[in-house]
Structures are given as C-alpha cells and as structure tokens.
C-alpha cells in the first residue's frame, strides 16, 4: 500500500508517457491519478514498487505490463496485452480488455469487469485472472499455472494444450481446445472461486454456478515414454 497521503495528478495531454513511466519507476511508490490517457500505449509499465495508479479513461496496448507490487486501475477499456507478464500486485479494468490480456502473467490478480477478447491468459504462468464478462477464442492456450475465472461465456478452443492451470467458466463454452476437459468441482474449487470473486469485487455470482476445466494430460508431452525427447 502507498505510504504517502498525497496523490499526484498527471495529465497526459500536457505531459508525456515517458514522463509518467519515469515517475512510476520511483522505488518508494506513491499514488497517481492519470487523466486523458486517450488510448496511449505502454502506460504504467514495469512498475516494481507499491504504487497506486488510477488511469481515468481508455488505455492502449501493453498497459500495466510486467507489473510487480503496484495496484493499477483503469476506468475505461484496455488495448492488446493488458498486464502482460505481471509478476504481482493487482490490475483492475472497469471496461473491456482486448486480446492477450494477462498473457504469461506469473503472479498477482488481473480483474476485467467487462469482456476480454481472444487469447486471454495465453501461456499463463501463475497469476489469477477474473473476467466479469466473457472471453474470446483460444483463451488460456498453453496455460501452465494459475487460474482463469470467467463469469460469462468462453470462445472457441478454450484451454488448448493446457498444463497445470485451472479454468472456471460460469456460462457457455463454445468449444474446448485439445486436451482440455471438464473436471469435477470439489470443495477446494468452491473455496477458490468464492475467494477470487470476493477479491475481484464481483457480486451476483456464486461458486456453484461455475464449471471447472483442466488438462486431461493425454498430449504427447505428458507421456513418460517421451520424456527423453525433452
């Protein structure tokens, strides 16, 4: 949490993206409210301190990429690659997110209150992603670890070539990808879903409404006979 009571104001129609990111690389952290993002790319990227950043509008590509420790809020929609490779902290978007939201994210929590487009959580490596709406095709493709929780529907090829990551979907799944299967929802799952919904601040959904999807572990790389090939 930020220790300073002072919140900086930053107007991106007056100052540059580079100036904003330079400020946010101060290792002491702090609180900043950014107005007029106007879809600019690479906002609040590479943070590694307990910053609280509020972006008041729509943001462009790669917002909050590589985030560690910081809490970044977008009061609008986000472009491609939101919170890509996040390590820790929390990124919350009140609008929609474009493709590859949370791609390769290792840790932390990404919340998208609207929809996330194609390839949400692709190659997920440990983070939790909560989507209030629906996700597009090929979401959680090759996801290795972590959780993707979708309150709406999922597009085609969900969880293709999944490893250890777990997917929960409340709505309809257009189709499952290779080696992704529905699995039984146990009490640990119910507790995990309840906790994630609470952390994400999403009301009106209950854990029992979700279905769990995971890897069937039947692809070539899961067979011990092929272990020597790697």
């Amino acid at each position: 949490m930020a220790t300073t009571a002072e919140t900086h104001s930053f107007d991106l129609r007056v100052e540059s993206v580079r100036a904003l990111n330079a400020l946010l690389h101060d290792p002491h952290g702090g609180a900043v409210r950014v107005c007029h993002p106007d879809g600019a790319h690479a906002l609040a990227v590479g943070l590694n301190a307990p910053w609280e950043v509020e972006l008041d509008g729509h943001v462009g590509y790669y917002c909050a990429g590589m985030n560690a420790q910081a809490q970044i809020t977008v009061r609008g929609s986000a472009g491609v690659g939101l919170a890509e490779n996040m390590m820790s902290g929390r990124v919350e978007v009140f609008g929609n997110a474009s493709g590859a939201a949370g791609a390769t994210a290792h840790g932390g929590l990404l919340v998208v209150h609207g929809d996330a487009a194609a390839r949400a959580g692709i190659s997920l490596k440990g983070a939790a992603i909560v989507v209030g709406g629906s996700v597009g095709h090929m979401s959680a493709f090759m996801a290795q670890s972590g959780t993707l929780l979708v309150c709406g529907d999922a597009g085609e090829g969900l969880g293709d070539s999944l490893y250890e990551a777990v997917i929960y979907v409340r709505g309809r799944v257009a189709s499952l990808g290779a080696d992704c299967v529905e699995q039984e929802l146990d009490s640990d799952d119910l507790a995990r879903i309840t906790r994630l919904l609470a952390e994400a601040g999403i009301d009106g959904a209950s854990a029992a409404e979700f279905r769990r999807y995971g890897s069937a572990r039947e692809l070539y790389n899961f067979h011990v006979d092929n272990a020597g090939s790697y």
Partner: peptide
C-alpha cells in the same frame, strides 16, 4: 485500428466502445 484515433473525436470519452468480434 487503435482507440488513440477515436480519442480525437468529440464525445469519444462518453462513447460506447467495443472490439468487433472475429
């Protein structure tokens, strides 16, 4: 192609925005 271009239009901040489905 990018929201940046739409942001220049008057009223963009209050516009309904979405990504067209594939």
């Amino acid at each position: 192609s990018e929201y940046r271009a739409i942001a220049a239009l008057e009223g963009a901040e209050d516009a309904e925005t979405w990504e067209p489905e594939p």
